[in-house]
């Protein structure tokens, strides 16, 4: 465990909690892509199946359980409890265009051709693109609430910090996971355009709105 991974994990946790609290406190999930949240729930479910087979540390287990729990709570709020506030008309990204290629790739490029490992690989690939329905929704409506942009910032920051963590681990531990690194780079790149808007607009007190 190094400082980059720890702050990366905490940044990820912050993102998840910010989103859940925003929805809970405002009693509304307007502007939030339910599809992205379902994909994240699927990511955590398929990645953390090793909760049942191996114990790594109390920290590891606790974080996994919190991530899974929060992601299902978010999906529950969007599709069940606060369904009336869900903006389904603008959440039109076709997720099968992500799931099918990602599933195929997980079968072809993995560390070990076993069910658990293929599901882990699937979760890594899927996570890298799971935010696309949310970004697509923002590009469609042309704006995002400031709190939603904080969520996206912490979610992007988490993967950027993981990239530094992997450089650190490569130098100091000889650790190198090509699948995680390539997917992590792709994931971070997807946030670059958003990061630019966040720094130039939101941090200067303006609302994030895109030119028509």
């Amino acid at each position: 465990m190094n400082i980059f991974r720890l702050t990366g994990d905490l940044s990820h946790l912050a993102a998840i909690i910010i989103l859940l609290l925003k929805i809970w406190k405002s009693r509304s999930c307007a502007g939030i892509s339910g599809k992205s949240q379902v994909l994240f729930a699927l990511v955590f479910t398929t990645r953390y199946l090793d909760l049942l087979t191996s114990f790594i540390s109390l920290y590891n287990t606790t974080m996994k359980v919190i991530y899974i729990g929060c992601s299902y709570a978010t999906v529950y709020l969007i599709y069940m409890k606060l369904k009336a506030t869900y903006d389904g008309n603008h959440d039109t990204f076709r997720v099968e265009f992500l799931i099918v290629p990602v599933g195929g790739l997980a079968f072809l490029v993995n560390h070990d051709f076993s069910p658990l490992e293929i599901l882990w690989t699937f979760s890594i690939y899927l996570e890298s693109v799971a935010i696309l329905p949310q970004l697509f929704m923002i590009s469609k409506t042309g704006e995002a609430e400031t709190i939603t942009t904080h969520y996206l910032f912490f979610l992007g920051l988490y993967r950027a910090l993981y990239l530094i963590n992997w450089i650190w681990r490569f130098y100091f531990e000889g650790f190198f996971d090509m699948i995680a690194i390539v997917a992590g780079v792709v994931q971070t790149i997807l946030y670059c355009d958003f990061f630019y808007l966040y720094v130039t607009k939101v941090l200067k007190g303006k609302k994030l709105s895109l030119p028509a």
């Binding site: 090793d50 191996s54 974080m63 076993s114 658990l116 490992e117 882990w120």
Partner: peptide, 10 residues
Amino acid sequence: AEGEVLHDEL
């Protein structure tokens, strides 16, 4: 188990 990959990151 043999050949099993251990992932220690989240």
